[in-house]
């Protein structure tokens, strides 16, 4: 039953993706700047014939409706076109970069939850204690600090001054790692490559903290306030009246209910983690999708922009689907 509903939801996503595709396609072409001009600017003296030839090659000389049709037709077959600049299939480029972005997002999410959960729970249980006030002040800081600033500060402290952690990249250059999934941590575990695992985790640490700080702050605050509300509820009082210990009351009866609003927020943050990391990828020289998109936008590399935005939309839809499915497990009052 649940599997059928999930399949249904996946099918519902198709028109959304189609809509995203059309909107992105149109808006990319509405932005001022001609991709061929930009390419030529790099290439030097080129005849107008060659320009026309390039335009024809990219179908840029045809009406926009035709171009849209080609794009959708190819996309349905899993072909997102060729990058104007990189001269490679967009799918190949994205497949090459996406694991780095996902790995960073996963690391950031993991660290964020690792920090946010104890803080959120303890702050609620010991409301108005020094610990509560202190952690909520930190949470406020975490939300207000811009990512690039925090990233630079962390690099200055932990990489430059203390030399504990690397400044940039995903792996020490002298370490070789056989790539299977593209997730370095996973690959080093699969290939039982200890040094690579150590190195990739060390590289992951600072960018994950930078990216995850705001998420940790938001999740901690949401969890704290939902815990506070739940701890005042009648069913928590009943659990105590049954003779449950305070830790059981908090962890089982209260947390299970406080998770419901928290999961929604975490789900939204996953989108932010995947799509909002362009600056952090730049600061840490992280070879992910974010930097690629920024470059693609500057170069008016239409197919690459389209492909990347489609991937963002897809991951966002996927994250929402996961949240919705998780929701039905957390909250029996809600069905898919």
């Amino acid at each position: 039953m649940r599997a059928i509903k999930i399949l249904e939801r996946i099918l519902y996503a198709i028109p959304i993706i189609l809509g995203v595709a059309v909107v992105v396609f149109v808006f990319v072409r509405l932005t001022p700047g001609d991709p061929v001009d930009i390419m030529m600017g790099q290439g030097g003296a080129i005849s107008s014939g060659e320009i026309e030839q390039l335009r024809a090659e990219f179908h840029l000389d045809e009406p926009i409706t035709n171009q849209l049709w080609y794009f959708l037709r190819d996309a349905a077959r899993g072909d997102l076109g060729y990058s104007y600049i990189l001269k490679q299939p967009v799918t190949v480029i994205i497949a090459d970069r996406l694991p780095a972005t996902i790995e960073l997002a996963a690391g950031a999410l993991f660290l964020a939850l690792l920090i946010a959960f104890p803080i959120g729970i303890i702050s609620a249980v010991r409301q108005n204690s020094i610990l509560d006030r202190l952690s909520m002040s930190f949470a406020f800081l975490g939300i207000s600090m811009p990512g690039f600033w925090l990233g630079i500060v962390l690099i200055l402290i932990f990489a430059v001054a203390l030399r504990w952690l690397p400044v940039q990249g995903r792996l020490d250059p002298q370490i070789t790692l056989q790539q299977i999934t593209g997730f370095y941590v996973v690959d080093s575990i699969i290939t039982a490559n200890g040094p690579a695992l150590w190195s990739s985790i060390r590289h992951l640490l600072l960018p994950s903290i930078t990216l995850g700080a705001a998420v940790a702050a938001i999740v901690a605050r949401v969890l704290r306030s939902s815990m506070l509300e739940v701890l005042r509820s009648d069913y928590v009082q009943l659990a105590r009246a049954k003779g449950a210990s305070e830790s059981l009351v908090v962890v089982k009866h209260a947390l299970r209910n406080a998770l419901i609003p928290t999961v929604t927020v975490v789900g939204l943050q996953v989108g932010v983690l995947l799509g909002g990391n362009m600056i952090i990828e730049t600061v840490f020289g992280w070879p992910g999708l974010g930097r690629l998109v920024v470059d693609a936008i500057f170069n008016r590399d239409f197919p690459l922009i389209q492909g990347a935005v489609m991937v963002y939309a897809l991951t966002y839809i996927l994250a929402n689907l996961v949240v919705d499915v998780l929701y039905t497990y957390l909250n029996p009052r809600i069905a898919l």
């Binding site: 069913y235 299970r256 419901i260």
Partner: peptide
């Protein structure tokens, strides 16, 4: 409101 909504 006294029964915990998430447990059978």
């Amino acid at each position: 409101s006294t029964l915990n909504p998430v447990f059978p």
